[in-house]
Design a protein around this nucleic acid. Structure first.
Lengths: 204, 204
DNA sequence: GCGATACGAAACGGTGCCGTATCGGATCTG
DNA sequence: CAGATCCGATACGGCACCGTTTCGTATCGC
């Protein structure tokens, strides 16, 4: 989506674009979203101001707010870890804890619900959701299926429900909480073990 | 927060307020939020228009947008079901499925994330969160503690984590999904049973 | 009927953001 | 050097919403 010079082509005349500017703009977007603004309520002027950049500089790179934000979100796609394949528990934990993206896990977690909300309002973001989020989910799905095959998981489990249970507590904790001050890293391990072994006692 | 005539006092002179108007306004708020708007982006004009009401009618009842929306959300507080106390599973399921509030469970579920987002941006809503949401959570906590006492649950479980696991999948499913078309009623039962018994197979 | 209040609709000036244009200065190529 | 482009800053007309006010009508107690 970004308008950039072709890598191999002849150097464009004139002053080249400062690559730090785009980064500062993305940073401003994430920062504003993490502060609680919704995508709908974001303004180009606020982004420009936060980034210490002129509005024209933004409009030179993107046609409008939606394109800018979609670009920013695409840029925060995290590398999905390749499951090692030794242990289902180990692989799932690695995926759950790799929600880490750039530097600030916490901030990214705040941004995700903004995407979800905007998705419902603006169809353009549905595609983005599929690419960024659903791709991660598919990796987890594969691990769950492998677990069933190896007998590490029961064969009658509902993969979609299990997937939801493995991901949503951390999301909700970031969105509403943190409830009771539970950290994401600690929480994800506890959630995983609970999903695996359950909480039932002898009298149930 | 609503300015209403004292119930027992002498009748105020002039034309009485149409009680249907406030309801239509609340309905408009929920409707707009469910359509994907954020609280931040809601406008009085849009609410008035959707409710088929003049702006003056809204400003006659509430001083501003925040007060109106907080009133609307307070009005959607659901009666928390009293646990029967016979079976932990039964009580938890009743609570999980009673997220129902007025008529439209689906719509209410879409509204909750809006509150969460606004909570971070606007401290006024934090109090509301405590009253509406945390009250529900406390009921569930009590059931979990009882389950530990009766041996229906293991004594070493983390109540906060378990609570999060029992509530967040339904929330996330409404927010992002529905993933794989899972219905809330069906999902909540599957989640509960998974939390209780786990997904581990013989080889784990 | 009369005074009081509520209702929907419309208009008001003020404000913030829109997207565009322009400016002076900086930074590149040739 | 000249020409091109990028940069931050600022200003522009247009628009949507703000919160208030005014209007004509409707509905109450007296």
């Amino acid at each position: 989506m970004t308008i950039s010079a072709d890598a191999g082509a002849a150097r464009a005349p004139g002053r080249p674009r400062d690559p730090g500017v785009a980064e500062a703009i993305f940073e401003a977007v994430f920062s504003l979203l993490a502060e609680g603004a919704s995508i709908e309520a974001l303004s180009i002027e606020a982004i420009a101001s936060k980034a210490g950049v002129g509005k024209a500089t933004i409009y030179r790179r993107w046609p409008g707010k939606d394109e800018l934000i979609m670009d920013a979100i695409s840029a925060m796609k995290s590398k999905i870890p390749e499951p090692k394949g030794e242990s289902v528990r180990e692989d799932l934990l690695a995926i759950m804890q790799s929600t880490a993206v750039s530097r600030d896990v916490d901030r990214d977690a705040r941004v995700i619900p903004c995407i979800a909300l905007e998705m419902r309002r603006n169809p353009k973001f549905a595609r983005l959701h599929a690419e960024v989020i659903e791709a991660r989910r598919e990796v987890s799905r594969a691990v769950l299926r492998r677990g069933i095959a190896t007998g590490e998981l029961r064969p009658d489990i509902d993969i979609e429900v299990t997937l939801l249970m493995l991901t949503s507590p951390m999301l909700t904790n970031k969105l509403f909480g943190p409830y009771a001050g539970i950290e994401t890293t600690e929480l994800s391990e506890k959630v995983l073990d609970t999903v695996l072994t359950g909480v039932a006692g002898p009298n149930l």
